[in-house]
Amino acid sequence: MSGASGGQRWLRILAPLGLGLLLLGGWEAWLRLAGIPPYVVPGPVAIAGALVEDWATLSASLLVTLKITLLALLIAASLGLLLAVLFAQSRLLELSLFPYAVILQVTPVVAIAPLIIIWVDDVTLSLLICAWIVAFFPILSNTTVGLNSTDHNLLDLFRLYGASRWQVLWRLRLPTAMPYFLAGLRISGGLSLIGAIVAEFVLGTGGRASGLAYRILEAGYQLRIPRMFAALVLISGAGIAIFLALSLLSQLLLRRWHESAMERGERR
């Protein structure tokens, strides 16, 4: 790596960081100068204070939300991949099932969450189902497109050498679909978190096993605005972490061959 692009890399981290600090500082300064109390708009210092003070409760809730989010994402990824593979094997199956996947996708999860809680009668499971519904579709549709994007000449080549259906799937279609699947996964990671939060807002939970959404509602009722913001910060942080982790995964899996995962200078 040359010095110039090494500098680029640092700039990529330092520039947004510097801007962030500047904004936070400006925010705090503005609140103090204008004399706005923290129960109207809390400043970064108050929020950080709430984060530290309520860490035990907040981190437990973060864990609950993360668990639902990641489990929903995992199920969405495996089911989406599996269903896409089945679609690729049978056009009839794709034609008959895909519309229902679309319906599942376009129906607002807020609207079906109450139904789900009636049917399954278990809050955690309901939350999981809601998050899954939101996360499922991008993976399914992306992977389906990927499986159908196989190079025609390569397909001919496999046919020429008498490849079985299974060999075509394993050695050609799935690798072709990999970047599409990973792109879907990155979208679904964020959606899964949103699904988990929104569903909790609608369904509500109480007691020990409540997630961050409940903490926000609770803090709202109690007018503990800094704590509300602290929960918000944790949600955003979790979303960013999920996105970065999935980007890293994608990078690791694709960096040797796919254009999307290459360093800028490496691209042709």
Partner: peptide, 24 residues
């Protein structure tokens, strides 16, 4: 069969590409 384009699998090394007919 040699196509007009090289028609290689981008995710596989040169060796794996050449070995494909045998592996199949």
């Amino acid at each position: 069969f040699v196509f007009q384009e090289p028609t290689l699998m981008p995710w596989a090394t040169a060796l794996a590409n050449v070995a494909l007919p045998l592996r199949l």
